[in-house]
Design a binder for these strands. Structure first.
Length: 576
DNA sequence: GACGCATACGTCACACTATGAAAATAGTG
């Protein structure tokens, strides 16, 4: 099995956890965690960098030792140093870290004093009442452990952003109605529009004496109260989504929102800038010598460190602070910049609605055009279209267009890329369309080189407008197939074709890093919903969130262009 | 374990709250 960056990061994370339990040098532990983050956010496969003999120590947080370890992991799939740590400490210990209120110190004590090394043994020890007598534990902690195991309330579980969105909306509306509540705002990774979120962070401004905290923990859907205090509480909903609530006063709203939105790395960077200026920045405001000098709005916080306001989607400490300092922040694409949707299915293949229904729904969203892009014949499970049915659909679209005023339905297809890189329909058929979307629905397991070259061959066909869902991943379900996305982006640049950002909440494919890479390469990205019914058209908002995380501006997004311009851009991809 | 300044060594990621144990641990962005 080829080693992916995720595997390398997992080795470093596990080593950090084990070193943490062992009580090792905290800076060494941090070095492993930093390296894991660098590896995850790299956007290129380290395996390929190793093969190309690139200097890994040029990467931030990777020195001689870790670069050697990366090479070792690429070669063997693991690191001897990890095996050694595992021999010292059973692997079940890192699992115990995922239980709320158990951190490295307590896990170490459980292991050392009671010999506990798995969740099963932990449960038995708690049932037998052995844990309460350990130093640093008590009856309550023992009970919490049992509760957590029973509720399987392990932290670290992630949810699709789209899955959390309705919960956020409902909770927000409910909180707003509590007496004394003046303002409610979602924060955290949800506000940063991350594709998956670990919990839902909510910020509330309330008058003194407001019952907001008491009410919050009594919210209908609360399954388990993890913590409740004056200013901070956490609960677990029936759906296992954790919600953290912070209450602040008005003058702290901006500072708290900034803090609570994160990312952690961004906060640290901002606070360091504050320190350099002799300021203390915390969630209550900006302070000079204990004197409050701002924090009502986020703008005040950024202004204190001589920066303009930075959009939440960019706050990852991945260059946004430098860009802000130089006045080079992108003007991020917005939902109302979209003029159409270029990837959708109808009842002719595996969709639910007619072409007319899709067109009317899109027009109601304010769009000027859509493209109908059914699957091709190879995809029999989706009733893919052959040449004949595709041409019949063309005629239907012509009839519809003659009736629609100020709205255009474009003729497209989502043609399968076959194993040899050919397309599933002949060129003379494709040529009669406005655009050709191509994608992979078979042979996901090819080696990276073969998969990449397969797609590049497809891109070189006379008719090829854009590559749909380029990595094939399904968030939280299926890993991307082994494919060299940077190379595909480069090839798209040379070929003059486009990359899709599939806005389906389960896909969001391209990911944010690759969006940014496409922008830097000058390859336009198309935000498509891949709708299989009218209600799916609304998913464009998730694509917008992802695009913004990828630093995309309006001009970087294909379907912000007017129809005329779009058609001329398509013509070059269709051999015209 | 990385990194910068120096070539061996000191420094490294901020700021704060809740909990439950009896001073510390865990957890939040």
């Amino acid at each position: 099995m080829p080693v992916h960056n995720q595997d390398i990061a997992a080795v470093f994370e596990e080593m950090a956890d084990l070193l943490d339990i062992r009580g090792d040098n905290p800076f060494r532990i941090r070095a492993y965690r930093n390296a894991a983050r660098t590896v995850l956010e790299l956007g290129r496969e380290l395996r390929e960098m190793v093969e190309a003999k690139e200097d890994l120590t040029a990467l931030p947080g990777i020195g001689d030792d870790l670069s050697r370890k990366i090479e070792e992991i690429v070669r063997t799939g693991t690191a001897a140093a990890l095996q050694k740590l595992r021999a010292e400490m059973p692997a079940g210990l890192t699992e115990m870290l995922r239980i709320p209120n158990l951190g490295p110190k307590r896990v170490k004590s459980l292991h050392k004093e009671l010999g506990v090394q798995s969740l099963e043994q932990l449960e038995k020890a708690a049932r037998d009442g052995k844990i309460r007598d350990l130093a640093g534990f008590g009856e309550k902690t023992e009970q919490h452990i049992l509760d957590a195991l029973k509720a399987r309330a392990l932290t670290g579980k992630r949810f699709l952003r789209a899955a959390v969105t309705p919960y956020a909306g409902a909770l927000l509306a409910w909180l707003e109605k509590i007496p004394g509540v003046q303002q409610v705002a979602p924060a955290g990774s949800f506000r940063r529009a991350k594709e998956t979120v670990g919990d839902l962070d909510m910020l509330v401004v309330a008058e003194a004496g407001s019952p907001v905290m008491d009410r919050f923990v009594q919210y209908d859907e609360v399954k388990h109260v993890l913590a409740k205090g004056e200013t901070k509480s956490s609960v677990l909903l029936q759906s296992d989504i954790q919600v953290d609530l912070r209450v602040v006063e008005t003058r702290s709203f901006g500072a708290a929102l900034n803090y609570f939105t994160g990312s952690k790395a961004h906060n640290i960077a901002i606070r360091r800038l504050g320190q350099q200026r002799g300021l203390k920045i915390n969630e209550y405001g900006v302070f000079r010598d204990e004197k409050y000098i701002g924090g009502r709005t986020e703008q005040e916080v950024y202004a204190a460190v001589d920066l303009p306001w930075i959009p939440p989607e960019l706050r990852e400490d991945s260059g946004e602070i430098e860009a802000a300092r130089e006045g080079k922040l992108p003007e991020l694409v917005r939902a109302d910049d979209l003029r159409g949707d270029l990837h959708m299915h109808t009842a002719a293949s595996d969709g639910q609605n007619s072409i007319a229904e899709m067109a009317l729904a899109a027009r109601a969203l304010g769009y000027e055009y859509i493209a109908i892009t059914e699957h091709s014949k190879r995809l029999t499970v989706a009733r893919g279209l052959d040449e004949k049915r595709l041409m019949e659909q063309s005629e239907e679209i012509d009839r519809l267009n003659s009736e629609l005023k100020g709205f255009t339905v474009l003729k497209g297809v989502e043609v399968d890329i076959l194993e040899d890189g050919k397309l599933d329909l002949p060129d003379d058929v494709l040529k009669r369309l406005d655009l050709v979307i191509a994608s992979i629905h078979s042979k996901f397991n090819l080696p990276v080189q073969k998969q990449t070259e397969r797609i590049m061959r497809a891109m070189d066909r006379p008719c090829f407008t854009m590559l749909a869902h380029p990595s094939g991943r399904l968030l939280l379900e299926r890993e991307p197939y082994a494919v060299d996305i940077p190379r595909l982006i480069q090839h798209a640049k040379e070929r003059g074709c486009f990359m899709e950002l599939n806005a389906h909440p389960l896909r969001l494919d391209l990911n944010d890093l690759h969006c940014r890479m496409a922008r830097e390469s000058g390859v336009k990205v198309c935000i498509n919903t891949d709708a299989h019914g009218v209600s799916d058209l609304d998913n464009a908002r998730f694509g917008i969130g992802q695009a913004r995380r990828g630093w995309l501006e309006k001009r970087d997004v294909l379907n912000t262009h007017a129809l005329k311009q779009l058609k001329s851009l398509f013509a070059r991809t269709m051999g015209k």
